[in-house]
Amino acid sequence: MKITLNNKEETFDKNELTIRELLELSNFSYKLLIVKVNGKLVRKEAYNNTVVKDGDDVTVLHLVTGG
């Protein structure tokens, strides 16, 4: 499948991935993240049962301390 991840097109071997799998494959290793799929927020509790499919638009932010 092809998805848009942080404004870039990315291709994966699988037809679908859970958010958890996608984060592991793409090395988003920070403890605190913001995840959006097609503009909708996906909370941490839903990472295992939210599925990303071909054509989806995914945004992932690392939350880093400092301000």
Partner: peptide, 9 residues
Amino acid sequence: AFDLAEMKQ
């Protein structure tokens, strides 16, 4: 304009 990541989240 927070400092901590938890607050930003």
